[in-house]
Amino acid sequence: MRAIVTVIGKDQVGIIAGVSTLLASEDVNILDISQTVLQGYFTMFMLVDLAACRLSFRELADALDKKGQERGLTIRIQRTEIFDAMHRI
């Protein structure tokens, strides 16, 4: 299963390191990363593969959310199908 991790917040040192360390520790493979600054906020998108992930989807979502709160960031994870359904034919 593939999913998109979206990270939004104030730019700071170690955002990518923090998120990717968490993902690596749960055996989540990062396939692609894109980052930009949107309306003054750091915005990062990660395409990840959850095939080997040790947590359930909801546990991983909660872990990412907790990580985000520690750093004042909003981190969410969504399965890719929703974006494909809405934007691709």
């Binding site: 998109i4 979206t6 990363i33 894109s34 930009t36 915005t43 998108f45 974006f83 934007h87």
Partner: peptide
């Protein structure tokens, strides 16, 4: 990855 699609959704 298509950031525009993710942002729009």
């Amino acid at each position: 990855l298509n950031p525009q699609e993710i942002i729009a959704t």
